[in-house]
Amino acid sequence: MSNPKAEYLPFDPNPRTPSEAPPRNSCDCQFHISGHGYKKREGATYSSEGATFEAAQRMHRKLGIDRGVIVQSTVYATDHTIVLDALKQLGPNYRAIGVIDDTLSDNDLENLKTAGVCGIRFTFREQLNLVPSWDLFQRSAARCKELGWILKVNAPWDGLNPELVAQIRKLKDQTIEIDHMARIRGLDDPNLATVCDLLQEGNIWLMISNGHRYSTYPHFNEAVDVAKAFIKANPDRLIWGTDWPHPLHAEFMPNDADLLELVYRYSEDPVIRKKILVDNPARLFGFSA
């Protein structure tokens, strides 16, 4: 999927109502947006046409999701115009995660914070063509700490490598969120124990999203097993997101209700579900209880 001209599937524009409504104030902790008239960066590897914030909000209403976190797309990188425009319209139930480099000034970051940006994301997935140097990662982590922001990590496609784990462990006094189940693929994945250990460190959060990408279609049993291991390790540091509009999907496109129902399979305990969907995101992103 590294070919920038590859044909990826469009998102399902007709999300169905899930079999069970999620708890009130449930949060989609990662979705991306696009729109006409916004400048795409040179080197962007995909484009999700029609994935506007209005379309995302319609999806949330259909699923029963009340809160959300826009994650700046690598398509736009450090130009946050589209995110700032969306936050103005979406109101207090939405936050955003940005993308930064050394071209953004401290004043730029303060303006983003005022608008509702509460963290930055670094992607180490090579297909997205925006992997940072370690120097940039470390400098930006320090700036993130000064702002009290979340530092969000998108692991390489083949999972966390020892150097990335070492970098994460160095940042003990700031909040780290690891995306997409850390790309753990089943209970035999050698990184599973590492991620469970990270969840015990007190500053590490994990988004248990995209389980369908790292397990077998159509049952996704591997994702269920892995999520249960994460819940056993630390249910107070787990969140969830749709990753709508599901960029770089080339094989099949899930309906977003399927993804919420996959979360329900991770635990039948309503208390655990509420932690993952409501309580933990509220603490991490600063939503009211």
Rank of each mutant, 00 (worst) to 15 (best):
R121E: 14
N3C: 05
A155K: 02
K88P: 00
R169K: 15
Y266V: 11
H212G: 00
N234L: 05
F230E: 09
L90H: 13
Q30V: 05
L277I: 08
D243F: 06
A55P: 00
F122K: 15
L206P: 02
Q174K: 07
A55R: 00
K274M: 04
P190W: 08
K275I: 02
K170R: 14
L238K: 00
R67V: 14
A56W: 00
L90Y: 15
G37R: 04
A115T: 13
N280Y: 01
D12N: 15
V99A: 04
E201I: 09
E177A: 12
E126D: 15
Q89E: 10
G91V: 06
K274R: 15
K152A: 06
P235S: 10
A142I: 12
A166T: 10
F230K: 06
W149V: 06
D28H: 08
R61W: 02
Y94V: 15
V117Q: 12
A233N: 04
K232H: 13
N14C: 06
V271L: 11
Y46N: 09
H36N: 12
E222A: 10
T52C: 03
R16H: 09
R125C: 11
R213P: 02
K275W: 01
S26T: 09
L63R: 08
P22Y: 04
W205F: 07
G148P: 01
Q167C: 13
T114C: 02
Q30R: 08
A182I: 11
S48H: 00
R237F: 03
I97H: 00
P235Y: 07
R125D: 15
Y94T: 15
S34R: 01
A56H: 03
L164S: 08
N280V: 02
E146V: 13
W240P: 01
F137S: 06
V226E: 07
A289D: 15
R58T: 11
K145D: 00
P247S: 11
V263Q: 01
D258I: 04
G98T: 10
F11V: 07
A257W: 05
Q30M: 09
K172H: 12
W240M: 05
Y264V: 08
A233W: 00
D269A: 08
T242F: 07
A6C: 08
H60S: 03
Y264D: 00
G186L: 11
P4W: 08
L259H: 03
S73T: 14
D236S: 15
K275T: 01
L104H: 01
R24Y: 10
A21N: 02
A86F: 01
S267A: 14
P156H: 07
L277E: 11
G50R: 00
V165T: 14
I184A: 12
G50E: 02
R121V: 14
G64K: 10
I272F: 03
V278Q: 05
R41S: 09
V195I: 14
E251D: 13
R265G: 07
K145I: 01
A55D: 03
G148I: 02
W157L: 11
I100A: 12
P254T: 10
H246V: 09
Y264K: 07
L90G: 13
L147G: 02
R283F: 04
D189Q: 06
G98S: 12
K88C: 06
F285A: 09
